[in-house]
Write a protein that binds this DNA or RNA. Sequence first.
DNA 1: CTTCAGTGGCTAACACTGATAGCCTCAACG
DNA 2: CGTTGAGGCTATCAGTGTTAGCCACTGAAG
Lengths: 186, 186
Amino acid sequence: MTSPSEATETGMPGTARGSARKAQLVAAARHLLETEGIEAVTIRRLAAALGIRGPSLYKHVPDKAAIEAAVAIDGLTELAEAVRGVPATFTDVSRAYREWALAHPHLYRLLNTHPVDRSRVPPDLEDRAAEPLILATGGDLDLARAAWATINGLVDLELARRFPPGTDIDAVYSAAARAFDTARAD
Amino acid sequence: MTSPSEATETGMPGTARGSARKAQLVAAARHLLETEGIEAVTIRRLAAALGIRGPSLYKHVPDKAAIEAAVAIDGLTELAEAVRGVPATFTDVSRAYREWALAHPHLYRLLNTHPVDRSRVPPDLEDRAAEPLILATGGDLDLARAAWATINGLVDLELARRFPPGTDIDAVYSAAARAFDTARAD
DNA sequence: CTTCAGTGGCTAACACTGATAGCCTCAACG
DNA sequence: CGTTGAGGCTATCAGTGTTAGCCACTGAAG
């Protein structure tokens, strides 16, 4: 059997699958990522964080990409939760999104870098994360997706320091909010 | 002297600095990137493309990051040129931007990944690239930056296939155009 | 109680990566 | 003619992900 942890952990699907060691592993990976950046997340350092020796990691995980995917899903879930429940306004959603991203810059960049294979992410997660924006656009799906792209772009440019120096980023967010709020009225 | 090509090539600053070999090198790097993706751009493969042996590359360039930076600036210049001169409308600018990005996906992703150290990019390049959007927003700088972020986000999500399957991406662009066009009127 | 299988460690090794040190050749120039 | 430097080269290093193969221990079956 190549995948021994198939139904050992009470068969609970989703996040908690895979022996507790794997959860510990993902936690360590995330900690390493958030504190030292993506280049610090190496198989050997990760193993050292668990007190084991590198190759032993492969007894718990097929490859490094699986670890990254698990961390990404972890982050994605948290981001969705940070956004869910805020008032259904572009301003509020974008603020929650931005604040989470700025609080976890490396993790956020991992989300953008790593495709996060749609099949691995719980299908309802995406819907729940998208809901506030859809409400904010009065049910206009296309406009909601445009707003999503906007927030993504804003955060990405800020994290990469691509705005010209001296840019009032809050003002840029306000301008975007103006655009999407008035578009909803149309 | 650690940087021998300081003033050899008629001292011409900017892109054409560094002996012709370096231009050849950057061209090879870009070709490799565009045809086989970022992971194919390796020192040894790059050297092989020039008929030399790997370590010899370091006679022309301090490190790999410098090559990536040069390629990125190359792409950025081209992208700016693709955008410059189109009608000053969100729709037209975003279309030009999107088409260039879809035609050069790996190169575009490199631009987003690689910071492109603002000091290395010709200062007027950014201004000329930004000009159509500023015109499109009636001179509102913040709105123009929001629009820039939007286009960036749209292209990034499309390239990463992060839109839900079946999404009509053209419709999302139209929705964004509606938002920014009506916001300008305000 | 013993045997036996599987989990989860380990070391050694491989094929890569970017990068450095040191050598050597050849052309240009004083 | 000699010197110098540009630009090749090989050998090598540290570090990456990953595999092979070995071994200890634990828990269940006979």
